[in-house]
């Protein structure tokens, strides 16, 4: 735990990371600056007019529907984070503690699922969940009425798709932090008289917190950029932020507005990252480790 502290005052280290930092700064900050600049222009007949005014921002702040979509996006993202963590914890725990012999096989399967194109997976879900899909077919044959489940093309389906596609992130981050827990700590808890459940609650769960936080942040930030799931599984009728931005850039060809909305989403993401980072530092400082 003590090996993580790298000094900001280490000149050699700073110098060594300089090229990468410069590259990152250039390729991140410059486009960000351009995006910001773009948001102060206006558009006429599908062409950007360099007007340098705040019309776009006034538009953003006076139209409720942009914000209702943002709110919808944040709500979905939070729900997705919660579900991913709730599902990943037992999965990762089982991987580390109960499935030692098949652990690597399962990991490979998860990686395969992870690497499979999200478009394919998402369309697969449509085939599975549709009114005339595999699931309803099965439910009908075992005696449920036709179209027993109708969960496609609504926000619930979007959430299902998001959780499905983003789950590997939380599984792996939580898996890594669970795998790093010294087995002796668990034995020490048993030894002190704790049941398995109590040990999980008192030792395993608190120590997996770095993985939970990291996975949660990753999933949240990625959730902000989700468009495929809402479009394909959600039926497009409750668009999320990324879809709004895509529509604005591509369908409306309103680049200044798209840039402004992009900045709003980036701001939400940055605030979340900042909050999570602060929380993390706070938790760690209490332990006296960095």
């Amino acid at each position: 735990m003590a090996d993580q502290r790298k000094s900001w005052r280490d000149r050699g280290l700073m110098l060594a990371t300089l090229p990468v930092s410069a590259l990152m700064l250039f390729f991140f900050l410059v486009p960000l600056g351009l995006t910001a600049a773009l948001s102060f222009q206006s558009t006429k007949y599908y062409r950007v007019v360099w007007s340098w005014d705040t019309g776009t921002w006034i538009d953003v702040f006076t139209h409720g529907h942009y914000w209702s979509i943002m709110l919808q996006t944040i709500t979905m993202a939070l729900a997705c984070v919660a579900l991913c963590i709730i599902i990943s914890l037992p999965v990762a725990y089982a991987l580390v503690n109960r499935m030692r012999s098949v652990e690597n096989h399962v990991k490979v399967l998860i990686v395969f699922a992870f690497l499979t194109d999200a478009v394919l997976k998402t369309f697969g879900w449509v085939l599975f969940l549709d009114r005339t899909g595999v699931m309803n077919g099965m439910l009908e044959t075992i005696g449920f009425g036709p179209a027993a489940t109708d969960i496609l093309f609504n926000p619930g389906a979007t959430l299902l798709g998001m959780v499905y596609n983003l789950l590997p992130y939380t599984i792996f981050t939580i898996y890594l932090s669970l795998a790093r827990i010294d087995r002796d700590l668990v034995l020490a808890a048993y030894d002190a008289g704790a049941s398995r459940l109590r040990t999980f609650w008192e030792v395993t769960l608190p120590l997996s917190r770095p993985g939970v936080i990291a996975g949660g942040v990753l999933v949240f930030v990625l959730s902000l950029g989700v468009f495929l799931e809402s479009k394909v599984m959600g039926g497009g009728t409750s668009p999320m932020a990324a879809e709004l931005i895509r529509q604005t850039f591509e369908t409306r060809v309103n680049w200044p507005l798209g840039a402004a909305l992009t900045l709003v989403v980036i701001a939400i993401g940055v605030l979340t990252l900042g909050g999570a980072g602060a929380l993390f530092l706070h938790l760690n400082s209490r332990k006296g480790t960095a």
Partner: peptide
């Protein structure tokens, strides 16, 4: 009998103090 129900206590080689 599980370790939690035994009248024994262990001092671990790497101590196994709960870091949190």
């Amino acid at each position: 009998v599980p370790s939690s129900a035994r009248p024994t206590r262990m001092v671990f080689q790497k101590l196994a103090l709960f870091p949190h």
